[in-house]
Each structure stands twice: as C-alpha cells, then as structure tokens.
Design a protein around this nucleic acid. Structure first.
Length: 522
DNA sequence: TCGTGGGGCGCC
DNA sequence: AAAGGGCGCCCCACGA
C-alpha cells in the first residue's frame, strides 16, 4: 500500500485525499495500523518535521531520488529530477529549473500536489516494470529510499561529539584558541620555522611562494604535495609538513567548524543521498565524510551508552568477485582476509595481491601493476574481463551500470570533442578508468545501502544509527544493547549479500565492536 | 569585492 | 611507497 504525503495532504493511492488536522499524528496512526510505503517528493523535506514530532516510518518511496535513478538509466543523467519536474515532463509541460534543495533555501517552491506525486509514482513504477531487470531496480529504489530515511534520521539524531574533548585536543595540538583571524600559537611557530629555514618570509599556505622559495634554495619542485616534499632534503621540509597537517585540522575541523556544526553534544551534518555519481553519499557542509582519524577520540558515547562501530572488510574486491561470478576469486572472497587468500597466486605476497586487485578496479598502471595484472588475467579471467569490459565501454563513450542498475553519466559534449582530437587517447583512458571503477564502487555502495536498510529495521529501541561512511556504520545504543546490536550488524551484512547476489560463495564480513570512543574501534 | 579554478589533503 | 577511482572543503591566485 502506497500513501502519498504532500504538503498537508495524505493520499492513499487509489483512495481519496484528506487533510488531517494534525499531519504527524495521522502519519503515526497509519504507520502503526498499515505500515504503508510512504511516498513523497523529497524525504528530508517531509520526513524531518515528522521526526521532530517523534514519528518514524519503516518504508518510503522517494520520488526525486527514484526519478534521478530512472533518468540516469535512460541516459538523461543530470536532468531535473524533482517531483515537480517529473510531473511537468509527464504532462508535456515546460520542465522547471531545479531548485537548490540545501537547508538554506529561502524560497523553496510549493510542494507539488498529492495527486501530481501519485501520478509520477505510477509513471515511475511503470518505467521500472519495463526494465530488463525490474527486480534489481526495485531493490535499488527501495534501498536508495531507505537510505534517505536513514540520512534524515542521522541528521536529526546527530553524532555524539564532545565539544570539550574537541577543544582540549585542538589546544593540545595547536595551542589555545586564537582570536579571530590569527594562527594558533603552535601553527604560527611552525610557520616561523619555515620562514627561518628559508631566511625570508614565506606564506606556507601559498603554493606559489613555496615553490619560489624552494627554487631559491636550489630545489626544483613540480608540486608541494607532502609525498613530494618528503623526498626533499631541506630544513624547511619538516616544519612545513607539520604545518600542513595542523593547518588542515585548524581550518577544516577547528573551533570555527565546531561552533557552526556542533550543538548540544551532537554533530549534525546534512547527508546527500546519492550525492556521488557512483551512489555513495556526499555531505552538504560539515565534512562529515572526511573527519580526520586523529579526531575520532572526540566521538564518545553518552554515559551508560556504547558506540557500535563496524566496517565491511575489503568490500570492493568481494563485490567484484560476486558480480563477475569468478570462481577463483569468489573462493578467496569466502575467506575473512581476501588478500591473504590471494597471496599464493601472486608469488606468495599479500601486498602484491592487494596491488593487483586495486589496480584492476582503479585502472592503475604504475610500478608492478602491469605485471601483477597479467597474473590476475590468467588466474581470475572472469573478474579481470569484467572490469576490462567496463573500461572499454567507458573509452568508447558507452554507459555502464552497477549491479542493481545505477547508471553512469553519459560522456559530455566536451569529452566527445576531446576524444577525436590529438589528446583523444588520454581522454578516452580517463573515462575508461572512471567506468571501470564505477561498476565496482557503485555496487559496493548498493551493498552498503542494503546493509543500512536492513540494519535500521533490526535495531532495538532506543538504539540509533548515527554515522555512515561508505562501508562503515556506527550505532549509538545503551550499553546493555551492544551485543544485540553487534549481532544485528552481522545479520544485516548477510541479508544485504543475499538481497544483492542471492546464493554466492562470497562472504562479506562485517565485524562490529562496541567502544566508548570512536578512536577505540579497530 | 566577488566568483571561479587549481592545488592540496582529509576520508573511503 | 605511490598510484589508480570517488568526493568536500580549505586556501590562494586571478580576473571581472
């Protein structure tokens, strides 16, 4: 049973619309009685006010996300995908420009009428049914929509963040919080050391000034990337590397960041479901997916609570093994340490096995990669061919799809021009590396979404998902629930694997640990 | 003064 | 050890 919510209207599909006096209460009652699949134009917009009223729902169909998936499948990646745009397209009307949906939008358009949303839903269900693999795409739509529920819930709940511990950490590393516009003491000291090493003033944030200063000291640099600097013998290098590391902490996750993003002991980023073409999430401000490892100690469970942290081990090669149906690779992927299981195929070296797999999935060519890829081609021909085919499709300007049907963007006009020009080979190879990776990364993202959707349904009250980062989840729960949550994670991983791949020898281990602080995980 | 693009680096 | 894929965000430099 599908029930549309748009504005203040509730419309059971096939029934009559009504405008309850209290929308949240009406949703709560219907959820308890019928467990419908809720349909709305935009999950964050509609679901967040419900969450604020303490209403949670089990399932939904996000019309905009689904439209985006369908448009991409149809080769129309990037076309306006809002419910409003989809409805206009359906009626043959001019398609409105996409409005930015960031939280800060002042003049958001009126939500489309419930009837319009219902029309778009019917159209979408029809388009899905006509696909060659409707079952897979239905799973994709369900997982993407469940992801939208989780994202809204995590933004609402927030990740536990101890502002006092954060301040202490920053003070320890950088010195006390400076007045506005100043560098913290330890950062300034490092900047001074860099200048002293050159014998004149240099802004360590300026690439140009640094390259010039090193040139003056007889050191030719192409870039000032830290790995290149590490090879340079000059007294400025050590303080400069230290400066770069701390400057990043200060600017990206410092006091100003905390003032903006941490309230009431919780960090509340806005997640963007499907924000990455491969289906990974992005964030809109807050940098939640780039929290430096050194900062993990700041993420602490409340008193009497625990953080259950779990990440999927070697997810991408396992996904490749399952998709390609490569028996040899799938055999290795039946082990907990996939790379160790592959080592004997690659001269007994686990490290070589890892390089071979990563190079196959990313299109690597450097160092020993080509030699190791030749071994992979011989030992694991189906897996090798699977990513080669994806790369070839990309080079030829064709579309590739993930396991469930998420589709990469078509090549741009610019790319088509470039590819027939003198630098064409380079452009073609670049796109080949992208599509090669897309099929793997996209399917890994689908597995993770499925995991999230299942896990969400297994969690006991009042446990809450509070973080999700590509292949890693974090649950905040009362201490006494930790064991139950750990078991739920394993169960969800197994169920996600079954949902995507059915019976497969490939295992997707997801070991969860209960900790007091994020930094104590792994 | 503002927007944009590149360099650099955090995460997976 | 780095590189090969995907991002967001900071800063600087530059041009309108």
């Amino acid at each position: 049973m599908y029930v549309v919510v748009a504005g203040e209207t509730v419309l059971p599909v096939g029934g009559t619309p009504r405008r309850p006096a209290d929308l949240a209460e009406a949703v709560r009652e219907l959820e308890a009685a019928e467990r419908p699949r809720w349909v709305w134009a935009d999950t964050r917009e509609t679901y967040t006010p419900l969450l604020e009223r303490g209403v949670r729902v089990a399932r939904c169909h996000d019309v905009a996300l689904t439209e985006g998936l369908l448009l991409a499948y149809e080769g129309l990646h990037g076309e306006p995908r809002s419910a409003r745009a989809a409805h206009a397209r359906l009626r043959g009307l001019p398609v409105p420009e996409e409005q930015p949906s960031a939280a800060g939008t002042l003049f958001a358009p009126e939500p489309p009428a419930a009837e319009a949303v219902a029309e778009v839903l019917a159209d979408q269900l029809g388009r899905v049914a006509a696909l060659p693999e409707p079952g897979r795409f239905r799973l994709l739509v369900a997982a993407e929509s469940a992801g939208a529920l989780v994202a809204a819930e995590m933004s609402h709940e927030g990740m536990p963040w101890r502002k006092d511990v954060h301040d202490a950490l920053l003070t320890e590393l950088l010195g006390p919080r400076p007045v506005h516009g100043m560098r913290p003491a330890k950062l300034q000291a490092l900047a001074d050391e860099v200048a002293a090493a050159f014998g004149h003033a240099v802004n360590p944030d300026s690439v140009q000034q640094l390259v010039k200063a090193f040139k003056g000291a007889g050191v030719a640099l192409k870039t000032t990337r830290s790995w290149e600097l590490k090879r340079v013998d000059h007294p400025a290098v050590t303080p400069l590397l230290a400066y770069k590391e701390l400057a990043r902490l200060f600017s990206a996750h410092g006091w100003v960041w905390a003032d903006q993003w941490v309230r009431g002991g919780r960090f509340r980023p806005e997640y963007v479901v499907g924000g990455v073409v491969s289906g990974r999430w992005a964030t809109n401000g807050g940098g939640a997916l780039q929290i430096p490892k050194v900062m993990r100690r700041v993420v602490m469970a409340d008193d009497g609570w625990a953080l259950v942290v779990a990440d999927a081990a070697q997810l991408e090669p396992r996904v490749l093994a399952a998709m390609a149906g490569d028996q040899g690779l799938a055999g290795a992927a039946g082990e907990i340490d996939l790379y160790a299981a592959l080592a004997q195929s690659f001269g007994g070296e686990r490290a070589n096995a890892k390089i071979a797999m990563l190079s196959a999935m990313y299109g690597g060519t450097s160092g020993d990669a080509s030699k190791l890829l030749a071994v992979m081609r011989q030992r694991f021909p189906k897996a090798y061919q699977f990513v080669e085919d994806a790369a070839k499709a990309g080079e030829e300007g064709r579309l590739v799809r993930s396991w469930l049907g998420r589709t990469c963007p078509p090549p741009s006009q610019r790319w088509r021009e470039l590819v027939s020009g003198p630098e064409g080979g380079r452009a073609a190879r670049d796109r080949g590396r992208f599509t090669r990776n897309f099929v793997v990364q996209g399917t890994a993202a689908e597995w993770a979404l499925a995991l999230l959707a299942v896990l969400r349904g297994l969690l006991p009250e009042p446990a809450r998902l509070v973080f999700f980062q590509h292949d890693e989840v974090m649950v905040h729960c009362p201490l006494e629930q930790a064991d139950e949550v750990i078991a739920a994670v394993s169960q969800a991983a197994a169920e996600a694997s079954r949902l995507l791949f059915g019976a497969t020898p490939v295992r997707f281990p997801m070991e969860a640990v209960a900790v007091g602080s994020y930094s104590d995980a792994k």
